[in-house]
Amino acid sequence: MPELTITTANFESEVLKSDLPVLVDFWATWCGPCKMTEPIVDELTEEQKGKMKVGKLDVDQHPEISQQYNVMSIPTFIVFKGGEPIGSLVGAQPKPEFDKLVQSAL
């Protein structure tokens, strides 16, 4: 489980101003496909330690951020680097797709 919980309050400091790239998992408690991708997100959190941060953002709790980045379906994963979104994945995708997304930001 990623230790980082992203909220409207910490989005700027943890994501936009982060020194490391950040993978944000837009999810919700009721979302089945989000649950299915949890093991992958956990694996990435371990693999990318020190190179990339991985955080989860609950779209029900923080709809402003999802709206701002045009999230229209969950799970959506967006990688931010230097304060900008540089790549995304929508829906439950297999691990190699995540690896590609992560590599593009490193």
């Binding site: 779209v59 029900d60 229209m72 969950i74």
Partner: peptide, 13 residues
């Protein structure tokens, strides 16, 4: 990105 197959999942967006 606008096309959805799940109303309850995505209606709130």
């Amino acid at each position: 990105h606008g096309v959805s197959y799940c109303v309850t999942c995505d209606a709130a967006f």
